[in-house]
Design a protein around this nucleic acid. Structure first.
Length: 312
RNA sequence: GGCCGGGUAGCUCAGUCGGCAGAGCACACGCCUGAAAAGCGUGGGGUCGACGGAUCGACGCCGUCCCCGGCCA
């Protein structure tokens, strides 16, 4: 029996400098490989707007979970969970440590926590969603959920149609209450494997400036051209999940004539990034397992503390 | 100078017949098990351009003035 490897995790809001820090960490230690826990970097061709590590960076440090599928495919938390855990196992089998890096909170927890997703049936879901979409449909399906699974209903907002529909879908396909599939994502208990979690914390004003600067830099680096190429190649077949990507969504809207100008598209992308960062902050903040590393300046300033915390 | 339209939350704008000031976005706080860069909840915010008038009561009606836009001269 070999000693259990303690893996690493670096989380935080978008534009907080996670990727650069992770790269520096991996270059400093010779036993660390990076596992991206990002719902958008899995798509080939979504490079600039997802702030994907460059080819030289990926040559210098082994990266996993990047460029896995075409943008015409739907990705999901379940696919990410399976593939990322396999990557961690692979890294461990070679005697190395995985450094999980990402801002997709649900995905991070799906990888490290014992989250079990009870299956899906798109047909059943579509049928329930259609009922919910009718006038007065949302209260109706919520009533149904209250009857079938009061515990789940108590945790789901009566107006959140998507989560009500999903809970009913699970009940219908498994015959068991949705609430019977685990304590929920706020449990934050023992992880599936030993992992040390660190979070990058920046003052909001600093983060807001970094977000604005980064989106502007993406524009200069050719984000519009990348989206044009994406649309030229795949058009309407860009998947539901891929087309949600911030920046891509707005520029596609512009190219389709639903947005008056590129400036509007970028302005909206900055705003949406900021609200996304706020939700990320909320998500990670509740997790007591994360040790926070803060600075009011360049995130690179926390590198020494990280290296010290993660040396072995 | 004349005519017309407008001035209401940080922004864009609703506001019916005169009866406690509204929405979306933004902001703040928060939720989260197969779309999660998704979805959703709560909250703080107002000299309704200014002054005067009629009215029990005005964002609304009347008068004067200021500002913005358009057309005419």
């Amino acid at each position: 029996m070999t000693t259990a490897t303690t893996h690493l995790g670096l989380v935080g809001p978008t534009a907080s400098g996670k990727s650069a820090l992770a790269l520096a960490v991996a270059e400093h230690f010779d036993d660390v490989e990076i596992v991206s826990v990002d719902s958008m970097q899995v798509y080939r061709g979504l490079d600039v707007g997802t702030a994907k590590p460059s080819q030289p960076e990926r040559a210098a440090v082994q990266h996993h979970m990047i460029d896995l599928v075409e943008p015409t495919e739907d990705w999901s938390v379940v696919r990410h969970q399976a593939a990322a855990r396999a990557a961690v196992a692979d890294i461990q089998s070679r005697g190395k440590r995985a450094l999980l890096v990402g801002g997709t909170g649900l995905y991070v927890q799906a990888v490290i926590d014992d989250l079990r997703f009870p299956g899906e049936d798109r047909g059943v879901r579509a049928e329930i969603a259609a009922r919910a979409a009718q006038p007065g449909g949302v209260p109706a399906v919520y009533d149904e959920l209250e009857r079938l699974d009061p515990a789940a209903a108590a945790k789901i907002d009566p107006k959140n149609a998507r989560r009500i529909v999903r809970a009913l879908e699970v009940i219908h396909i498994t015959g068991k209450p949705f609430s019977s599939f685990g304590a929920g994502v706020g449990a934050c208990g023992a992880t599936m494997f030993p992992v040390r979690l660190a979070g990058v914390w920046l003052p909001r004003t600093v983060l807001a400036q970094r977000i604005a600067a980064r989106v502007e830099a993406m524009r200069d680096t050719g984000l519009v051209e990348e989206v044009e190429a994406l649309v030229r190649r795949h058009g309407a077949r860009v998947s539901r999940t891929a087309r949600q990507a911030i920046g891509y969504n707005e520029i596609i809207s512009f190219l389709e004539g639903h947005m008056p100008s590129v400036d509007d598209a970028f302005e909206r992308a900055v705003r949406r990034t900021a609200t996304f960062a706020r939700r990320q902050r909320m998500w990670f903040r509740r997790d007591p397992r994360i040790g926070w590393f803060g600075t009011s300046d360049n995130p690179g300033a926390i590198l020494p503390a990280l290296l010290q915390a993660w040396s072995r």
